[in-house]
Design a protein around this nucleic acid. Sequence first.
RNA 1: GCGCCCGUAGCUCAGUUGGAUAGAGCGCCAGGUUGCGGACCUGGAGGUCGCACGUUCGAGUCGUGCCGGGCGCGCCA
Length: 576
Amino acid sequence: MREKLENELQAAVSRLLAAAGDGDSPPAFAVEVPRQDDHGDFACNAAMLLAKRLRRPPREIAEQLIAELGDAGGLVDRAEVAGPGFVNLWLSGARWQDVLVQILAAGSAYGHSEAGVGQRVQVEFVSANPTGPLSTGHGRQAVLGDCIARLLQATGHDVTREYYFNNGGRQMRVLGQSVKARYLEILGRAAPPPADALADADLPWPDEIDGLPVAFPRDGYQGEYIADIARALIDEHGEGWIEEPAEEGFREEAEQRIFAEIRATLDSLDLHFDVYTNEKTLYDEGKIEQVLADLRETGSVFEADGATWLRSEDLGLPRDRVLVKSSGEPTYILPDIAYHREKFRRGFETIIDVMGADHIEQVPYVKAAMGLLGFDGDRVEFVMHQFVTLSSGGNTVKQSTRRATYITIDELISQVGADVFRFFMIQRKPEAHLDFDLDLAKSEDWTKNPAFALQYAHARTHGIERKAAELGVRMPGPGELDPSLLESSGEIALIRKLGEFPEVVARAAESLEPHHVAYYLRDVAGLWNPWVQDRSNRILSDDAALTAARLGLTLGVRIVLAQGLALLGMSAPERM
RNA sequence: GCGCCCGUAGCUCAGUUGGAUAGAGCGCCAGGUUGCGGACCUGGAGGUCGCACGUUCGAGUCGUGCCGGGCGCGCCA
């Protein structure tokens, strides 16, 4: 609809320019849905953009444009010049009604497009190391990354969801030590460290208490899940693991159990990764050494203080960075570079990294390194999301990873359910802080909780179908209704809104901003609920033709709500 | 100190890539509504879009400088 109109306008502008003897290409004008209804179905700003070039008042140009446009092949019912030189266009009513038929014909394909066909895209997200349960911050990232992937799929892209993690390294050693310490403590062979020393890194750390050694590492993981693992090990092995090295059996057991928990959490969000990539395999396959060698080739690597550095300051970045520590161990950024090169080598046209804003510092270094290695760093798109705060009763809940005073995804889901969790996590744009209002999320009042409001609006379409069935009325197919009977302002407004869905999806996919979908769906429900409620629009009436038309609109609403909810990964219940 | 992000109604936040009289939900006030599905409607109060310059036909949106908040600025990840 809009495309056709744009083409017609484009042609009209060209004719207008030609008539004025201007051979240059036409300006990039906009055709948009105005905020106000009385500004027409669409508005075009071309005349104002041409004013300076043609040295004539914009309103005069607008008049001429309207004359050139004519009825645009039967599309336009009425056009007028408004304000500083807008051309406001009203489509003939039949055009809107056609949209409804198209929606019904497209069914569950409505809103999808082929824009990205042939494009391989990787979305990497969550990527938490298996050191503990996923926190609310991971939850935001999980939902965000998954919704971005869903949007890209809906626009025809070939999407791979990937989870990257590291089960080697210092973090995991500390994890093993933490579990072993708890194991020994429970068996009475070690003393737990004092609580105040755990809480405050400036306080002294005892080697032993009452003759028992303190085994827990100073920077150990304090969460209760560590002790749970230790208890499970005691159930299985008793005291048999006292001599087991912390970095072997304990580390491996902890990793396995925690990763199983993480997967279970993701499952509960209906979130499934296609590929799990382990940093260790990059080492095993020599990718790390290789990338370092290749970087050396570029001349952007130097040795200093016993360490190996990337000469990134010369690339316009704030500082040089260590790639390999003087201990011989790489920093995290080297495998990161190797990993991103592998992404390119695997043939992805676009690489999307979803990560927390605390990782923002590394972004330019990865891009620059890709440039050094001969890849286009701009094909890696970083979606950085800000932190999540939880609030309840007007107070924010403080969270700390190290001290394990954070709220896990599991806890939140158990309180509000996966659908509400997803909706609340997605409804803010990524770069804005997200305040998770626990009281509102827990509310089962469908008028208050926006997630339920959407699902209710969808369920209502099924309620109407059930009622119709009781009366022996069947839902109409696309060819079995006369949409011209839908002519009230409420009905036209609803159809217009439904007609925007494909553009909303396209824009959200393009900008990697799923929250647009959430807001759009609220608009749809906001038009639908009052229309149903208004008894002058009674859907099921004695007038069979009108009933069919209104049931058709009901189906159109259902299609859009169902597809929209699916893009957000939410269920679309038939009854609530 | 430097970098990135945020600042819009009492609260939580959108704002179609620079458009017309800045919107939604919740909350508040006054009416109406007894319903195919209950969760609805109408009206009202509430804003110098953090502040100031600039760019131009036109700025919440772009630029610069301040103010306030968040996150970074390790041979931690």
